[in-house]
Amino acid sequence: MEVKNLRVKSMKNEDFNNNDYLEKYVEELHKGGVNVAIGVLDDVINWGRSHSVWPLTFATSCCGIEFMCVGAARADFARFGWEVTRNSPRQADVIFVAGTIVYKMAPVLKRLYDQMAEPKYVIAIGGCAISGGPFKDSYNVVQGVDKIIPVDVYVPGCPSRPNAMLYGMMQMERKIKLESFFKLPKKPIITKEEEIRAQIDEESKDVKTSK
């Protein structure tokens, strides 16, 4: 199936990689048929959504500096409508995981992701966020953020260049444009909420009894 009306300013559809992945995605979304009225409404909503994606200010290491370059004068992601970096996860749509995630940071990242409102997206930036990268053999590094949270776009590099990040953002934009807003696919939940709650309850009980 051909990807319909996927227009991204100043770059042709065939110039992008990974088009077959998006075609499969469309096929999956359209399995039950598309309602014409809702389909058109989807296009309008997605056009707005894809041009006002607000990222969370989140960076742990080197890729964060290149992320700052994307925000600064030369690369300037304001051109894409992505410039409003939010400091609160409640107001953010996308989280750029820029940098290594270590064991101590993993629960923090998970909580930040959980605090974001749906629909939410994750872009893994750099080798560390994708697979542990150069720190694959380290005792304290999570081997890729997709072990903790679902990832939408992977941007390789060590650190990724600003133009690579822009390309990753455009891929994200294309993905948002294809989605059907009224039946957004559910994201897999990796850790079970109830289990963690029970664990915390148990720990707090221990603290109380010890006092």
Binding site: S61, T100, V102, M105, P134, F135, S138, N140
Partner: peptide, 24 residues
């Protein structure tokens, strides 16, 4: 929150291999 254990990893690497880690 970003302790990656570079010093420990270096013990398994050769000297030219350690160089990229010092930059990070």
């Amino acid at each position: 929150y970003i302790h990656r254990g570079i010093e420990k990893m270096s013990e398994k690497l050769t000297y030219p291999q350690i160089l990229p880690y010092t930059e990070r």
